[in-house]
């Protein structure tokens, strides 16, 4: 099922020059400098993330893996500016996260489709909110934007479901719509918070392939949080392992397997060896 080969991708510029100059893309996309997050104060204070330093180049696909509660999702929230660091600095596109230098697309573990909108309207939401699209939203929502949404939905196999409401779709279909919503505005930076976690094995593998195709097609910078090691190995170009609470990056390795990867890769000896190593590392991180 190679979707990019038979369906032409929507022909749109990868980045709009006026919002994302080449100089920004060349710089590191994400940089955490000793960033930490503490919720609450005094005795009840909870450290969600101990000082973490992490750098990500443009166009990289970085997977963050680690035991639950280690602060993986906290890093995503820092980058997307949902929370501010208690100490340290979070740079996105060379500026503080709050400055929103890069265009961000984000998909959460729950599909969080707005239940009063159709799939088409849900996927179109970023075009209504994000510059520069929002300027021409009124003129284009029935024309160019609609075609764009339909093309993307078709690419993930949801062409016939644009006018359905979220509750009429299955979990896997909702998660596809979720990916579409995260990608429709051609983000420079795609943040994925365990988006395939709640799906069955077959649907998950199918979506991995769709995700890989979309990534190779559009080349955004991707930060994926997951606890599925095979998912990390299949999709990512680099894997960071985090230690248990409070989290810290304990390993940072590139994935050398050539892309695009085939699902069969998962069962190859070098892939199994890589995930075994990761597994041991996380097991140690949990016990220590």
């Amino acid at each position: 099922m190679n979707m990019t080969s038979n369906i032409p991708a929507p022909t749109l510029p990868i980045a709009t020059p006026e919002t994302t100059p080449a100089s920004v893309r060349a710089r590191s996309a994400i940089e955490l400098q000793a960033a930490s997050v503490v919720f609450g104060t005094g005795e009840t204070a909870v450290t969600a993330l101990s000082p973490t330093t992490l750098k990500m180049a443009s166009g990289e696909f970085l997977a963050l893996v680690g035991p639950s509660g280690c602060g993986k999702s906290t890093i995503l929230k820092l980058v997307s500016n949902l929370i501010r660091p208690s100490a340290g600095v979070v740079l996105v596109g060379g500026r503080e996260a709050a400055a929103r230098k890069l265009r961000i697309g984000m998909a959460f573990q729950n599909p969080t489709m707005l239940p009063w909108l159709t799939i088409e309207q849900n996927v179109m939401m970023p075009l209504k909110i994000v510059e520069p699209f929002k300027r021409s939203y009124r003129q284009d929502k029935k024309g160019a934007f609609r075609d764009r949404v339909h093309a993307l939905l078709k690419q993930v196999g949801l062409g016939d479901f644009a006018n359905h409401f979220p509750w009429q779709l299955s979990g896997g279909m909702l998660q596809r719509s979720n990916l579409c919503r995260a990608l429709i505005h051609e983000p420079d930076l795609l943040l994925l918070d365990e988006p395939f976690g709640a799906l069955d094995q077959f649907t998950r593998e199918e979506l991995w392939q769709i995700m890989q195709d979309l990534y190779l097609d559009r080349a955004p910078t991707v930060l994926l949080v997951t606890h599925d090691l095979r998912e990390a190995g299949f999709l990512a170009s680099r894997i960071c392992v985090m230690s248990a609470r409070p989290g810290r990056v304990i390993s940072d390795e590139p994935v050398t397997l050539p892309q695009p990867r085939d699902i069969a890769t998962i069962y190859s000896p070098e892939f199994v060896e890589m995930t075994q190593n990761l597994r041991e590392m996380i097991a140690q991180a949990r016990s220590s």
Binding site: N81, I104, M106, T112, L114, M125, I129, V130, L191
Partner: peptide, 13 residues
């Protein structure tokens, strides 16, 4: 639900 609001917040709404 805060999650619904977060979807728009990440878009910079």
């Amino acid at each position: 639900e805060p999650e619904l609001e977060d979807v728009l917040k990440t878009m910079g709404a």
